[in-house]
Each structure stands twice: as C-alpha cells, then as structure tokens.
Design a protein around this nucleic acid. Structure first.
Lengths: 199, 199, 199, 199
DNA sequence: CATGAATGAGTGTTCATTCAT
DNA sequence: AATGAATGAACACTCATTCAT
C-alpha cells in the first residue's frame, strides 16, 4: 500500500518544521537538511513524503492557507448578509495572522522570494480565497448593499491588496502593534468603496 | 579623473541590460555574465560600475523607481486639489507600468524574490512613494475632501496595496488587457473609501 | 552515528591524493576538483571531510609531520645519550624524506607558498619538532656532552636550518643523489658545533 | 632609443613601492594596481619597466640581494683569513637584515609564497651568495683553518641554512629581539663545525 | 519505512595584462 | 612615455537529490 502521505504524522511534522525553520532563518537559509533536522528525521525521509523541496513549500502553503480559508468559509455561514461577510473576512484575515506569527513571516515575506514556478502554484491555492471574495461581492450586489457598478474582480483586488499590504506592513514593523485594531477602520473604508463606487 | 560611475553611459547600459535579462529569464537565471553579454561589455566591466550583483539590482530599482516617482511628483504640481492628485497617482501608476512591460515584470514579480537584505534597501526607495501618498491624504483631509477620520497610514496602505495588486494581476495575466482602463473605476473606489470612511 | 572524519578511509584517501596532485602539478595548480578526481570521489565529498581547501593542507601537514615526528620520538627512546639522539634525528630526517619523494616536494617547496595564515598553523605543528630538538640539546648539556655555553634555541635553529636546507637542496636538484649519505658528515659537523661552541 | 630601464628613476620607485606594499599587505594582497598607486604611477606604466608582475619580484630580489651580497663581498677584501671572512658573513647577514625590516619580511616570509618558477629565478640570484660562501670554505681549508675533510657544499648548506633559519625566526617573532647579538655565538658554532668536522 | 553518505552541477568575483588615446 | 578603462579566464564551495543498506 502506498504511503498515506497527507495524513501521516510525519507529513505534518515536516511542514511545521519548515515553517519554523523558514521563519527563523529566512527562505534562503532554509536548507532541506535543516528542515529534516528540525523535524527529527533523516534528509532522505523528506523525499518519502514530498516530491522535492518546492513540494514542501507548496504543501505548506496549501495546508496552512487551506485551513485559513476554511475557517473564513465556515464563519461565512453565520453571516446574514454580504456586509457582515465582508466584515468577517477582514476580521479573520487579521485575527488569524495575529495568532500565527511564524506563519505570517513565512507567508508575507519569505515565500515571496520563491521562484516564479512556485508562485504560480501558490496562486492556484489562492484562487479559493479569490472566489470566496468575489462571491461576497457578487452577493452584496445582489442584495443591493454594494454598488451595482462595482466590478467583482476590481473589488476583490482592492480587498485582497489592502489586507495583504496591511499584514505585510505589520510583519515588516516586527509585529509591534496589534493588527486586529485595524480591522474596523479597514472594514469601513472597504465598505464605503464598495457601496458607492463613485460612478 | 576617476570613473564617474553613475553618470557614465555604461552604467545606464548595464542597468537596462539587467532589466531585459531579468524580464526574459527570471531573477534566478539572470547571471552576471548574461547581463554583461546583453550590455555588450566584459564580465569584469560590470564590477567597475557596481559593487556586486546585488548592487546592480538596488541601483536598478533606485533609478527606475526614482524616475517613476519623480514623474508623479511633477504631475502633482499641476493638480488643484487632493482629489485630482489621487486621480493622477492612480492614473500615472497604471500608465507608467503600461509603458514599460519589461520593467513591470521585474518590479512586480522578479525583484520580490530577492533576499531580505535587498528588500530592506528597496523599502528605503519606496519611502518616497509612501510619503507622497500620505501627503496627498493629509492634504485631502485638510481640504475637507477626505473624511476627517481617515488614517493616513491606513489610507496609504489601501492605496498602495490596491494599485500594487492590480498591476501584479495584470502582469500575471501576461498583460492581456489594458491596465489604463482600470484607472477610473479604481480611482472612484478609492475616492469613495477616503471620502466616507464609515465612522 | 555522525561521520567519523579523521579515522575514515576517505579522509586518508583524500590527503594522499592531495600529496600526489600537489607534487605533480604544484601548489597553485592543485585545484580541489583535481584532488577529488585523483582520490576517486566527487568534489562535494571533499567538503564532508574537510572544512575548506586550506583545511586539506593543514590536515595533510598535521598527519604527515605528526607521523614524521612520532617516528623520531620513538627512535629516541632507544638511544643511550644525547649524541646518539642527535645522530638519530639527522639520520631519520634524511631517511624519512628519502622514502617519500612526493611528500618531500610538497613539504619543502610547495607548501611554503601557502598563505601566512596557513603557515601559522604549520608552525604550530612544527613546535613538536622544535621541542624535541631543544630537549636533546638540553639533555646533551646535562650529560656534559655538549658545551655548557650552547644556547638551546640557537642550537635548535642551526640544527633545523641545516637539515631543512639540505633537504631543500636535494629536492631542488631533483633528488639526483642519495640524501642518506649526507647523514654522517652532517651529524659530525653538528656535533662539533654543539660540543665546542667556541666560547 | 629604448627605455634605459634599470637606471631610470621610476624603476627604483616601483621596486621600493613593491617592498613596502608586500611588507604591509602580504604577498597575496600585493596587487599590481596597489604597487602602482604606492609608486604614484598608472597601472600601465608598470609594464613599461617590467615584463610582468613576476618580473617586478625577480628584479626586486636581484637588486636588493645584489646590494646585500656586494656589501659582503666588499667587506671580504678587508679580511686577513677565512675565519675573519666567516665572521663577517655572519655579522653582515644579520646586520643588513636588522637595518631593513620591510625587506626582511619580504625576503624571509612573503617572497617564499611565490610560485615555483619565481623561486628558480631567485635561486639564480642566490648562486652569487652560494659561491661566496663556498669560496670562503675552500679558502679556509687551504689555509688549514677548516678541517680538510669539510665538504664545501655541505658546509655552505649548514652556513646558509643556519643564518636563514635564524633570520626567519627573528622575523616571525616580530623582530622583538636584536638579531645582531646572535652574531658571535652563531659564528662560534659554525667555526667549531668547520674546524673539526668530526672525521 | 528510514537512513545519511555521496553526488556534481552551477556562478559571482578578482586581478594581471592590454591598448587606444 | 604615460594613462587607466576594459578585458576575460579561472575556481572554491553549496545543497537538492539519490540510493545502497
């Protein structure tokens, strides 16, 4: 029987080791051997669970971002309308990164140093998030809460670009302030932008 | 007289060659020897004008981003108020990247793969842009055009994050559409966000 | 278990390959890749056993000179007095170099081209030889065989300088004569110098 | 008319610059450009007076060692017999190095790092010194002062090896003691060795 | 399943030398 | 005679990946 990779204990062990090693040393100093050592396995063992180094990173992103998005999706179901949904996206985006400092560094700074190929795969994972955001905007338009002229794609790019830039700035400032306090003012700006797109 | 590096013809030659080579091959395949060949000089000549490879990239960014921001600053002087200034920022941000496809790829995709050290230097250059944006927001508040509750930093992060995300998406879609058509709707969204921040 | 470097077979293999490559090509043409090829290992393997290129040379010197001196020390124990000990030093110095032509070239000619740093480390190893020589001189004085006015340091410098110069001349003359025939006349000169230092 | 190299002012200027640069920076950091700068000429000018870098070093050695040996030869003429001549060799060898600290470092430490080829040329220059030494020994034998069994070559190797080792030790100890005080005891040891070679 | 020793491709940088001015 | 900008060959070292045990 083939190795049931994804559910194996070691698979998780290695991914979590990778997050710590990258956060601590930076992307360029996160050698496979260092990750193996941190995970407490032999170098070769890594290759029983991952195709190659890039696969560790893609998997890392897939697992962590998957959980990240799932948490948001789950919360969506409790929301009465698109406005609340937008608020939850902003709030949970900030809250989840706040709770995982190592992961924040890895996602916002280190993984962006990856090669073009890797980033294409990252984008695949992010599509889930993109769809979720565009769905909310579409819903808001249907509900009459957002402007009928609001373009889903543009709105989503503003939403994602804004949140991403804010988290990146927070990480670059060494997380010296509480990211969650930005939640409300950011939500308000976005809501205003979406309600009245000025046309 | 010693080599007047920055103003020499070769200095520019090498930087422009670097833009083309990085755009064509990607950051990781942009070897110094390849840049030298593209510039039509010997490998060693590179080191008469640049301290090392990283210095080429920092200089590239400084020169190109400097010109980019200067052009916007110059345009600012022709604007009657903050609203017009905001419009010009959005418009020129998109227009300038539209006009320089190679540079767009380098700035939005390739240079972000650079090591942490390099990115710290990049951020220094970007500070000019940051100040310019925050100045416009402050002016808008003084003029009563933007909401008095608008936070300069948050507003700037939304502005930059939005523009950056839009250009990145455009580059990733292989520049298949006209970036400049996004100018107006984007400006309108941002203006709405800044006018009424919802408080 | 971690790689037991010093005692591994490959460690010796590489050092012996280095001796041959340096003797054959000269110090400046003894590239790491050439040594690896001669040893029948990959370039990278070298770095599992040695910190860097300089470390190969220091280790080479330490191993070979260590064995060289140990052999002399061992012989010392069979000697009745300082005169015999002096004779054994001279004799074994010449005999051991005679038996290892490649090593002679490396020690007398090639390794002296090394950088200052390396030579400091070499001197550390040579201290053992220095002490051995000075001990013999001191013993000789106590036994009344050598002049009571003989200075240990000066005597040692004459002893080492003489032997070293003779081996160097022999190597430079392409080892065309039998070094061991110099043993007796050299010993006699040194003995005369040490017996009656003229004061 | 061809450049009268050897007698030109710049020729000397460059050689003296080389001595200072090598003494100060070490052989491996004595780049041609650094020597040119120290001499106050352009890099290219060096090549009007010297064939290549090695030629600077050989010329340096030839000039300095030539003067060194000439001074000894001149003194020889004032000596009544071989014993006095031997004394003068030892004394002047130490005295001259004492008086030229930079040159001592260059001759005893730095130039020995040179490639094999260079050292062959150095040996050519040293032959003058070798002959001078062997002549003194031969004279001493004829005068009945030295043992009739003394081998000229061996005696010369002891003489040169001893002096050389002593100067090298002095340089390596950062010239912390007065080299000239070694003159008498060293002479006495050598004289004893040459008088009675033990046969 | 697990190990870890071995592999070998790939590249930024220096510096002696040249030659157009 | 003198300059100094330009040249380009040469090389130590890292690290992702493999595979015999």
């Amino acid at each position: 029987m083939a190795l049931d990779k994804k559910n194996s204990q070691k698979y998780q062990l290695i991914i979590d080791a990778a997050v710590r090693v990258i956060a601590r040393n930076g992307y360029h100093y996160a050698q496979v051997s260092k990750i193996a050592k941190e995970a407490g396995v032999a170098d070769g063992t890594i290759y029983l669970y991952f195709k190659n180094k890039e696969d560790i990173l893609v998997s890392l992103f897939r697992m962590k971002m998957g959980a990240f998005i799932s948490a948001i999706e789950k919360r969506m179901t409790t929301c009465a309308n698109a406005e609340e949904k937008l608020q939850q996206i902003v709030d949970m985006h900030f809250t989840q990164f706040s709770a995982q400092p190592d992961l924040s560094v890895v996602m916002q700074l280190e993984m962006r140093q990856s090669a073009r190929d890797l980033r294409l795969q990252i984008n695949e994972v992010l599509k889930m998030y993109v769809h979720l955001m565009e769905d909310v905007i579409e819903t808001g338009k249907e509900e009459g809460i957002f402007s009928p002229h609001l373009d889903e794609k543009l709105g989503r790019q503003m939403l994602f670009g804004t949140l991403d830039e804010m988290v990146t700035n927070w990480v670059m400032k060494d997380r010296k302030y509480d990211l969650r306090t930005l939640s409300n003012p950011t939500f308000n700006m976005l809501l205003a932008a979406f309600k009245d797109d000025g046309s």
